[in-house]
Design a protein around this nucleic acid. Structure first.
Length: 490
DNA sequence: TGTCCTTTGAAGATT
DNA sequence: AATCTTCAAAGGACA
């Protein structure tokens, strides 16, 4: 499995080596991918929504034809590796001409190493921070200016079109609309460039109007429930809710990637504000030391989930803030015995630092709402299948965006929680979470069924894992058994 | 209420 | 080193 951070090495420095993707009929592939994306959605929609798919042979054939072709694993691996390499060496080779304008920070060389050996912020990191947090007081160095200029030379390749523009040509209005709206986003961006992820952003017109008071503070009303709801995540990143005084003023670096359903990347179960990497907002020349001092090893004590600004880290899920505070009250009165018990309790209540999202997860978060809206599906399992297919249909450049985002997420996560390990979240290590079931293939169940009826519900490649009946049930539910494939209906 | 489903990717665990 | 397992998000379905 390719790893973008290359074991962390690239996090510490950029490589100036030139790289180039292996050709492998790239052009043709791209064209085929784009057109396939269009057909893909139609296919998915027809199979999922129109409930009319019956001819498996033809669909699988056509699938094979239009599939981003021979995208064999090896090819994908190579691609991924290339992407990694490209991500590592953003100032050279292919990435000299940013393939995705409107995504400024990915073009910044040396961003993989935002911190200089002495712990101070690198100039390019400052650039990044300034672009992403315009109000952040980050001094720009000369190098940064140079790089910024360099990076600003973003062409506007015609092929860079949001996936939904491709897949939903009939929704050009929407895309255009969103494109315009996206310009409200306080992210350095050429006005004529469609943000690659723009389709996901549904900023309203009032939002992000410079100088305007945060209109998103007005209660929005949930059309479903009629109940006023918190500010739309598009207005203010749910990742990064800020203190009341700053809400809406400082966009998060990934703020444009905000999902539309109000969930933050790192939801906090209680405690008001959410912010993914709040510390980043206070980044300064000694961020590294600050971080390591603020987030001591391995465990982040509950109170550390709150930034000095009162903003908890979004990756931290504190199970019970109230209890923590009351607990500390009690603790002040305790004997050593109680203190032991308290320690024990605190250990159990260690905030849950979630894993940083990977590229696909970021993509899913971004695209889910669209798929839900356009495919009129609500079943997450089905949606995820579609998203999985679309993920594969993405061009390498488009995927690269997400890999890069994910890499930065990991980097930031790593910096915020130096001692954190994914192992901490494994069942048993995290008290707040129960052990997840172990996915076991039931002996003699399922797969033989698939062999005879590959792809029963979708014109997807054969699924080798779970049983078809469960798939259909999960996909359509019991109330839509008419949509189930033949074998499942038996 | 908790788990399953479903996807990909990252990372830890196991072989 | 290769393979396996878990967890990240999401929300309806289900026991």
């Amino acid at each position: 499995m390719p790893q973008l951070n290359g074991g962390g090495g690239d996090d510490l420095g950029a490589n100036d080596e030139m790289i180039s993707f292996k050709d492998e009929g790239e052009q043709e592939e791209k064209i085929s991918e784009n057109s396939s994306a269009e057909r893909d959605l139609a296919d998915v929609k027809s199979s999922l929504v129109n409930e009319s798919e019956t001819n498996q042979n033809s669909s699988s054939d056509s699938e094979a034809e239009r599939r981003p072709p021979p995208r064999s694993e090896s090819f994908r691996d190579k691609t991924r590796e290339s992407l990694e390499e490209a991500a590592k060496r953003q100032d050279g080779g292919l990435f000299k001409s940013p393939p995705y304008p409107g995504y400024p920070f990915i073009m910044i060389p040396d961003l993989t190493s935002p911190y200089l050996p002495n712990g101070s912020l690198s100039p390019t990191a400052r650039t990044y921070l300034q672009m992403k947090w315009p109000l952040l007081d980050v001094q720009a160095g000369s190098l940064q200016s140079r790089q910024a200029l360099k990076d600003a030379r973003s062409p506007s390749p015609a092929h860079i079109v949001g996936p939904f523009c491709l897949e939903f040509p009939g929704q050009a209005d929407l895309s255009l609309h969103q494109f315009h709206l996206s310009n409200k986003v306080p992210v350095v961006q050429h006005p004529h460039h469609v943000h690659p992820l723009t389709p996901l952003i549904t900023y309203s017109n009032e939002h992000f109007t410079p100088g305007n008071p945060p209109p998103h503070l007005q209660a929005d009303v949930d059309p479903k429930t009629g109940i006023p709801r918190p500010p739309h995540p598009s207005d203010i990143s749910p990742y990064y809710p800020l203190s009341p005084g700053t809400v809406g003023q400082i966009p998060h670096p990934l703020g444009w990637l905000v999902p539309q359903q109000g969930q933050p990347v790192y939801p906090i179960t209680t405690g008001g504000f959410r912010h993914p990497y709040p510390t980043a907002l206070t980044v300064n020349a000694s961020m590294s030391s600050l971080l390591s001092s603020r987030f001591p090893h391995h465990m982040v004590p509950p109170h550390h989930s709150l930034h000095t600004t009162g903003i908890p880290h979004p990756a931290i899920v504190t199970s019970n803030v109230k209890q923590e505070s009351s607990h500390s009250d009690i603790g002040s009165l305790n004997s050593s015995k109680h203190q032991d018990a308290k320690k024990e309790e605190e250990k159990k209540k260690q905030p849950h630092i979630k894993k940083p999202l990977n590229a696909f997860m970021l993509y899913m978060k971004e695209m889910r709402a669209k798929v839900v809206a356009e495919c009129t599906l609500k079943e997450s399992a089905a949606i995820n299948q579609i998203l999985g297919r679309r993920w594969h249909a993405l061009s390498r450049e488009e995927q690269a965006k997400y890999y890069e985002l994910a890499r930065k997420e990991r980097q930031l996560h790593m910096q915020l929680y130096p001692g954190w390990s994914a192992r901490d979240n494994y069942a048993g290590n995290y008290q707040g979470k129960k052990k997840k079931r172990k996915r076991e293939k039931q002996a003699g169940e399922g797969n033989e069924h698939r062999e005879y009826f590959p792809n029963p519900c979708l014109s997807l490649p054969p699924i080798t894992d779970l049983s078809a009946p469960k798939k259909c049930r999960a996909r359509f539910g019991l109330d839509q058994q008419n949509n189930w494939c033949g074998p499942c209906s038996l």
